[in-house]
């Protein structure tokens, strides 16, 4: 089976604006779950105000990698790492770099919509509140701005006090995005954010990602290659814990330099 790759007009990004700064520089990153060597010698440079897609078959380490970027990976089991990840020039594995500080700068959206069993308002206000913002007026302002930013304000503005589980799955996921936006992060990590959504909700989230790119740097893990092709500027192809290829999305999908990348995007495995 072959996949038809819809060619998009060449993106104007990196080539035209070479002065763009790097948000994340990953240098010789290795990661082990116990004895399982999950990430091997990763080198990646992620630029600001771009959408970077990470693709690859199940178990290739793409999810592990994105969770390493905000050190969520450490919550699961005993994890060992070597190498470094520089976020805005500072190594996130540094002893004195608090994970909470890092995660305040880097928002995350998860595979399954996971709103808290609270009202829509309280969900979005959660981040600012835990970080000490108590002023009701400021919170109102932040909630509205975030919900608008997540393109869901019009749908929920009259039901802010309803439980977040009373709305549809697609809306829940956009609430989760609004929740991440509420602390005005620098980077948004998205771990297969549309894998639990129907096609229409998926489309809305994709449009939203395009919109958010103006203000945020976005890293998105997806197993849907068309999605990567549609929304990303750069794409990294992971296989067995290694980065096989990292390039402009157009290059990856039209003219991959590695045979394995070509096999994967043409649907020969995965």
């Amino acid at each position: 089976m072959t996949t038809i790759v819809t060619k998009k007009p060449a993106k104007e990004t990196a080539s035209i604006q070479p002065q763009k700064k790097a948000v994340y520089e990953t240098k010789q990153l290795n990661l082990w779950y116990g004895n399982n060597h999950a990430l091997k010698n990763i080198d990646l440079e992620i630029m600001e105000n771009e959408v970077t897609a990470i693709i690859g078959p199940s178990g290739c380490g793409k999810s592990t990698y994105i969770k390493t970027l905000n050190r969520m990976v450490e919550l699961v089991t005993s994890v060992k790492t070597s190498g470094e990840i520089l976020y805005r020039g500072r190594n996130i594995f540094d002893q004195d770099y608090g994970v909470e500080e890092l995660r305040t700068r880097v928002g995350m959206v998860f595979q399954k919509p996971n709103p808290f069993p609270k009202s829509i308002y309280d969900n979005v206000a959660y981040g600012p509140r835990i970080h000490g913002i108590k002023n009701k007026k400021i919170l109102d302002e932040i909630v509205e701005k975030s919900l608008r930013g997540a393109a869901i304000w019009d749908e929920v503005k009259d039901r802010l006090n309803e439980n977040a589980y009373s709305i549809s799955g697609g809306q829940q996921q956009r609430i989760c995005i609004a929740r991440a936006l509420a602390i005005e992060p620098d980077v948004i990590l998205m771990d297969e954010p549309t894998s639990a959504l129907d096609p229409i909700s998926t489309l809305k989230v994709e449009e939203l990602v395009q919109e958010l790119k103006k203000d945020y740097s976005i890293i998105i893990v997806t197993h849907n290659m068309q999605q990567a092709a549609r929304i990303s500027d750069k794409t990294a192809f992971f296989l067995n814990g290694e980065v096989v290829e990292f390039d402009h999305t157009d290059t990856i999908f039209s003219n991959p330099s590695d045979k394995r990348t070509e096999d994967y995007i043409s649907g020969r495995f995965g």
Binding site: T104, R105, M108, Y126
Partner: peptide, 21 residues
């Protein structure tokens, strides 16, 4: 659900904040 924990930690909440809130 573990996802709620993840969401809270992902916002930069500390462990005690996540437990309490």
């Amino acid at each position: 659900p573990g996802e709620l924990r993840d969401a809270s930690y992902g916002m930069g909440a500390t462990k005690w904040q996540t437990i309490l809130k």
